[in-house]
Simulated scan of single mutants.
Amino acid sequence: MGKIHKEQAEHYIWGDSCDGWYLERDADRTIIQERMPAGTSEIKHVHQHAKQFFFILSGEAVMWVDGSVITLKPQEGCTILPGIPHQIRNDSSQDVEFLVISTPSTLGDRTAL
């Protein structure tokens, strides 16, 4: 048990120049801080087992959730239940930074649509 700083966390790049930092990573839960540059998006996908919670730290994100669109501003979040198709996008001209908490881990639990 100890503290973690984003600069010390395991970093990865996903999509088109998006960043992720594993703040916690085990089979039961992952907590990731992510950064999406302006105009980027994740592919539409679904998780069979993982429930996810997205929480916006800065910027503005658009969540496509099973055909509905939700705009999330700083200090707002939403939960995506298992089996629900979703996608996060940054339609703005600024970076968006957010946390995504997945229970259990999404490793091997993602199907692209």
Rank of each mutant, 00 (worst) to 15 (best):
F54E: 03
P82T: 05
Q75C: 12
I56F: 10
Q94L: 13
D19N: 01
L113P: 08
E10L: 06
I31Q: 06
Q75S: 13
Q87C: 14
D91L: 11
A9I: 01
C18A: 08
G59E: 00
G77A: 07
S41D: 08
Q87V: 05
V69K: 13
R110S: 15
G15D: 02
D109R: 04
E10D: 09
E10F: 07
G77I: 02
G83I: 15
R25M: 06
G2M: 05
G67L: 15
V62C: 12
K6H: 04
F98A: 02
W64V: 13
C78G: 14
V100I: 11
Q94C: 12
G77T: 02
W21C: 03
S58K: 13
G77D: 02
M36P: 02
A50C: 03
T111W: 11
Q33R: 09
A61C: 05
S41Y: 08
Q48V: 11
E34H: 07
M1N: 12
S58F: 08
H11Y: 07
E76M: 12
T71R: 13
F54G: 00
I80D: 00
T40P: 00
Q75L: 14
L99H: 07
G108L: 06
S92A: 09
I4A: 07
E42K: 07
A50R: 00
A50T: 00
Q94A: 10
I101D: 06
I13T: 04
Q48I: 11
K44F: 12
A61F: 05
K3M: 07
I43Q: 09
C18F: 02
P85A: 15
Y22W: 08
A61S: 09
G15T: 02
S58I: 01
I43F: 11
L57V: 10
G15L: 00
V96R: 03
G15H: 02
E97V: 15
D16C: 01
Y22N: 07
I32G: 06
K44N: 12
Q52G: 09
D95F: 10
I70Q: 14
E97D: 12
A61R: 03
F54S: 00
K73V: 07
H47L: 03
E10C: 06
I84Y: 13
Q52Y: 04
V100D: 01
L113H: 14
Q33M: 09
D91N: 14
D95Y: 10
F53T: 15
Q33Y: 08
V62P: 11
G108A: 05
Y12A: 01
E42Q: 09
T111I: 13
Q33I: 07
S93M: 11
M1H: 11
G2T: 04
E97T: 12
Q94S: 09
E60W: 05
K44H: 12
K44Q: 14
E76W: 07
A9W: 04
V62T: 15
N90L: 02
E34K: 09
D91W: 09
S17L: 09
